Simulated scan of single mutants.
Amino acid sequence: MFNIDFDALNPLERQIHSTLKQASRTAETIRITDAAQMCNCSVSKISKFVQKLGFANYKKYLDYLYARAQPEAKPSSELERIGRFLETFDQNKVQELASLIHDSNKLVLLGYGPSYLCAQYFEYKFKTCTNKICIAVPDDLTASSIIDANTLLLVFTVTGAFKSFEEIHRETKAKGAEVALIMEEYNPSVLTRYDRIFCLTDGHQPAGLKVYEKSRTVFFIFMEEVIRELSRRQ
């Protein structure tokens, strides 16, 4: 589990990312020592930047930068997949999302298909633990019509591949509102498009499953912990 948060970076760290992103377009790879030299900083500064952005180490950051897929794990049962998720569960990510929600006045929860049904359930649960306006919506148009500067848009998606959220992300940011994706599976092509992502696992469900056939179990485990934390803060 990890989250990418560009809002946490200072101007120097944003410049480091911009420099390395530009370099990745022509270089097959970038060693950490080369990265430090390009950015006129120390290797330790690069390591701290990577961790602050949300990655466990520099290699994980490179996988993100080059949109590399994670190695496919051997097929496993759903219980084994959930077991791996629980073994590496990061309570700090729960705290971070709970704080993001706590600091917002209005919540808009966006999901398509089964993810919208999940959003409806979370809408109900949020209303039991906060006094905030909370609305689950099934499409971009509805979301756009109710978002204002005091809104936090939470987008629920398994892979981010069923439909792009780029337009609603852009519109939400233009209104001065906050937006975060909560994504169940690792998808490098999606990670590079958005600036605030909570990626709950670094693996995948069986490749033969269509998006609507995939489990949302990890969504519920993570979000129930967030809701429990919000209840504690009330």
Rank of each mutant, 00 (worst) to 15 (best):
M1P: 00
M1K: 00
F2I: 04
D5C: 02
F6Q: 07
L9W: 07
N10S: 08
P11E: 02
E13M: 09
R14T: 15
R14P: 15
Q15H: 03
I16N: 12
T19Q: 03
Q22T: 02
A23R: 07
T26A: 02
E28C: 06
T29L: 03
I32K: 12
I32N: 09
T33M: 01
T33E: 05
D34P: 02
D34H: 00
A36P: 02
A36Y: 00
Q37D: 12
V43N: 02
K48V: 10
K52G: 06
L53V: 03
G54Y: 08
F55A: 12
A56V: 06
N57P: 03
Y58G: 00
K60F: 05
D63H: 11
A67D: 09
A67F: 10
A67K: 12
R68G: 08
A69G: 13
Q70K: 09
P71Q: 12
P75E: 05
P75F: 03
S76N: 11
S76Y: 06
L79Y: 02
G83I: 04
T88P: 06
F89V: 12
Q91V: 03
K93E: 13
V94W: 03
V94M: 00
V94C: 09
E96C: 06
S99T: 15
D103F: 01
D103V: 06
S104R: 04
L107A: 14
V108K: 05
L110Q: 15
L110C: 10
Y112G: 00
Y112A: 00
P114M: 08
L117H: 07
A119S: 05
Q120M: 14
Q120Y: 12
E123F: 06
Y124K: 14
Y124P: 11
K127M: 10
K127S: 13
T128H: 04
T128C: 11
K132F: 01
I133E: 11
C134M: 08
A136R: 03
P138Q: 09
D139H: 05
D140H: 09
D140V: 15
T142K: 01
T142V: 12
A149G: 14
L154E: 13
L154C: 15
L154G: 09
F156E: 14
T157Y: 01
G160L: 05
S164K: 01
S164L: 07
F165A: 11
F165V: 08
E167D: 04
E171W: 01
A174D: 05
K175N: 13
K175A: 03
A177D: 07
E178F: 10
V179Y: 00
A180N: 02
M183Q: 01
E185S: 06
Y186A: 15
N187V: 12
P188W: 13
S189Q: 14
S189K: 10
V190M: 11
I197A: 15
L200Q: 09
T201H: 02
T201R: 02
D202M: 07
G203M: 13
Q205H: 06
P206Y: 08
A207I: 09
V211G: 06
V211W: 02
E213P: 14
V218N: 04
I221R: 05
E225A: 08
